[in-house]
Amino acid sequence: MAKSLTEQLEELKRKVNAIEAGRKGVDKCRKNLAKAAAEYSDEYQKLINDGLPISTLEAEGIKPVTHVLYELGRDFRRNNDKPDDKTEPAPVEDQQSVIVEDSQPETDGQPYAEPSTMIPQTAEETNWNQQ
């Protein structure tokens, strides 16, 4: 038997409440992660300021907070890519979106570079309109 409009609205409200509760949980986790990352960064910097060489920290498996967060995100994406028990129909993609996705470089497997180690571009940019 079909659900009444009132029942459908109540079910939709329950789903909205569940989404809002989930968002609050995510916000709490995000705040906890930011706090933990800041504390880790402070402790890491304190060790460096006390004269401990970075090579010693790396030998012990202690990495800068940016590396730790990058690896955490990479692991999260890898775990998120695993198929669920549910099978969902594949979305229909138009040809334009497939071309755009294929033109994007893949970042998985590429080494992470610290912003401080990146070399700025020093070559002048050529203005092709002036030639």
Rank of each mutant, 00 (worst) to 15 (best):
M1A: 13
A2K: 12
A2C: 07
A2V: 10
K3P: 02
K3G: 05
S4V: 02
T6L: 13
E7V: 01
Q8L: 14
Q8P: 00
E10Y: 02
E10L: 07
L12W: 04
K13Q: 10
K15L: 11
A18W: 02
E20R: 07
G25P: 03
K28P: 00
R30Y: 07
K31P: 00
K31S: 10
A37P: 00
A37C: 05
A38R: 07
S41Y: 01
Q45N: 13
I48S: 03
I48H: 02
I48W: 01
N49A: 12
L52E: 12
L52T: 15
T56Y: 06
L57F: 04
L57M: 13
A59K: 12
E60A: 15
E60H: 08
K63P: 01
H67D: 14
H67Q: 14
H67K: 11
V68K: 03
L69V: 11
E71F: 05
E71K: 13
L72V: 03
L72W: 08
G73F: 10
D75N: 11
R77G: 01
R78S: 06
N80H: 08
D81G: 03
P83Q: 10
P83C: 01
D85V: 02
K86V: 14
E88L: 08
E88W: 05
A90H: 07
P91D: 05
P91Y: 01
V92C: 02
E93H: 09
Q95S: 14
Q95T: 12
Q96C: 06
S97A: 10
I99T: 14
E101N: 08
D102H: 08
D102T: 06
S103N: 09
S103G: 05
E106K: 15
T107M: 11
E114R: 02
E114S: 09
T117F: 01
T117Q: 09
M118Q: 14
M118D: 03
I119R: 15
A123H: 06
E124P: 06
E124T: 07
E125K: 13
Q130V: 14
Q131W: 10
Q131R: 15
